[in-house]
Design a protein around this nucleic acid. Structure first.
Lengths: 195, 195, 195, 195
DNA sequence: CGTTAAACGAGACGGTACGTCTGGTCTTTCC
DNA sequence: GGAAAGACCAGACGTACCGTCTCGTTTAACG
């Protein structure tokens, strides 16, 4: 009988050590070369402690990054009243983040995980993407109220056009990630959804 | 000394058998479960024959798909004189292709390969994406001549807006892939680049 | 770090299965054709379990035979008071054993192992040959007490003369292994060490 | 069809190069580490040229040593009229040869080959051992004529007793190989076959 | 506060696949 | 057509991890 473990007795110290070790190893070695064996050794933890609480390597890595992002709960976008300016501020920051080499290895690992495993894809949408997207849509709704965006705009589609080109360019290295590019994304998207 | 092999003596029969086996196994098992060992066995080939000519499993899989796409050299887009109609034709076909479940496993494997390995990313851009993009840009230039697209349009950016939302939606399963979606992509992109 | 395994956690079941499989394969295939891979498969054991506890194929085979011989601890020679008769009894038995075809393959394998690897040669002398020789010398000392062998006889040399011709004849197939040959070895050796 | 090669067209230059390379590699690496691959490379010869003319690695090594020994045809033993003295001369030389470290690796390789392969055992007896033994027996027959050895002595058995202890001691490193040992072998053997 | 149940660290286990190496065969190119 | 060169199929090598399974040893809730 594969007894289900009792979460109340779970060791927080071990959980933290495992997630820390996972993050450290991803940064050092890249995704493909990280093994559960190595995570356990680095965390000073038995392998079974990992298998007890996570179903796969992907899930561990996913949680390691999820935990990182959790800290920022109040993720509301700036709202100065000027949609274009606010979006450019956000997109310039986002582009800069993607252009950071230190960001590269771990976030690429995270994305590979999500793309490869449908279960994680769903978890990603629900736990990470959805709240963030909701915050973005709040800002867009505010703009709709202010008459800066048509009321019938499909906000999901709007966000897809705003972010997908950047995501694809980063994933496939098909072009430079510059502030000008960030501005262009905003300009073109706003033009696309103009009445 | 790790002697470099002599391509003149390479066995074409073995090369084909390996690429065929790789394609078959990817379709049957998915990318993660395919091993070089299995490819060699299926192809009736010694493992060394694979290691002699390819540096990694990713490279084999990449070549297997590259060879498939090579067949279509004359990949010009339709040109009826009506850009919007032609783009909708093409995008509806593309969307349908991505929505095909049989397309899913192998193409996802191929994309993971490309995203995970920078060397393959570069190879992908040069050998696969570039020619295809050039064909698309030819159609767009024709539209510029016809006055259906501004002459100063950044064609790479245009294609990014046209395709990236679809690519992201497919990769992360963030929405349905329907003919209406294909039409919307064309409509919005054309609107985005209107003068 | 090449961690040293903890013998306390060693699986006796696996150890036995490996030694049994080694013996069986040697008998069936002969030494040269036995691989660690085959031993592991036959024993239903992971290869690493062999590599964890033995440094080489030779060491496994050596242990397999060592374990066989261990069972006879009380290996005292017969002592009827008549040295010649007792030696002929023993040598006839030994010659018969060497003449047995079932004995051939495994024991030849074992001897090749010992002859080829100085480390195993030493282990053989200490763990197998020495105790057996000591038992033989006990019988000879008893004969010395009984006045059937000079007190200053070099017992090691005596045993060398008694056994080496048989060993060489078996190794190189230079003559028949018959009871008469056994008797002749005893007669000639006793004559050689007569005062 | 496995066409049999025509010996008349055989390249003597290649044959010599192969045997030389085999000898050199045995001396340098020991028997176990020598591969046909290495012999071919060292000899500047295609592997097929070896496989065309020899059935196995053992056969090549055997031939390599056979060719060495062939040169000494007139291998008569000294005959001063004093059997004991002549035998001690010969045995001291033989013991010294076996004690020579440079002799060790190649001759051990040669012996392993012979012991492991029955076909080579037979070839060894016929082509190498038999002529040498015949020369030794000629000396013993001369001693029989001179009344130094009984006329009914089994000469093969005599040689077995004289040489087997030395051979076994060398193979299994069970004792020192000294001139005193050589003398003892002669003394004891002569005593053994005294009337 | 002692008992007890479960999580823990450690690590051996049966396995799979790795990437390398060698054996013996087959093919190509040259002489 | 023999021989050098070397690619080929085959499969063993020894290593790295997989996910499972004991081991004792904490650790924390319960009695």
């Amino acid at each position: 009988m594969p007894r289900t473990p009792n979460p109340a007795l779970r060791s927080e110290r071990s959980r933290q050590a495992i997630l820390d070790a996972a993050r450290a190893l991803i940064s050092e070695l890249g995704y493909a070369k990280v093994s559960i064996e190595a995570i356990a050794a680095r965390a000073g933890v038995g392998k079974q402690t990992i298998y007890r609480w996570w179903p796969s390597k992907g899930a561990v890595i996913f949680d390691a990054f999820l935990a990182l992002s959790d800290q920022g709960d109040g993720m509301a976008l700036p709202d100065t009243g000027d949609l274009e300016a606010d979006l450019k501020t956000v997109m310039r920051a986002t582009v800069a983040e993607f252009a950071d080499p230190a960001f590269e290895a771990p976030v690429r690992a995270f994305n590979l995980e999500i793309i490869a495993d449908p279960a994680l894809t769903a978890q990603y949408r629900e736990k990470l993407a959805a709240p963030v997207d909701e915050a973005k849509k709040d800002r867009l709704r505010s703009a709709q109220q202010a008459g800066q965006l048509p009321l019938d705009t499909d906000l999901d589609l709007f966000l897809e056009f705003l972010y997908a080109p950047l995501y694809q360019r980063w994933l496939l290295s098909t072009g430079p990630l510059t502030p000008e590019y960030a501005d262009a994304l905003v300009d073109i998207t706003l033009q696309a959804f103009r009445p």
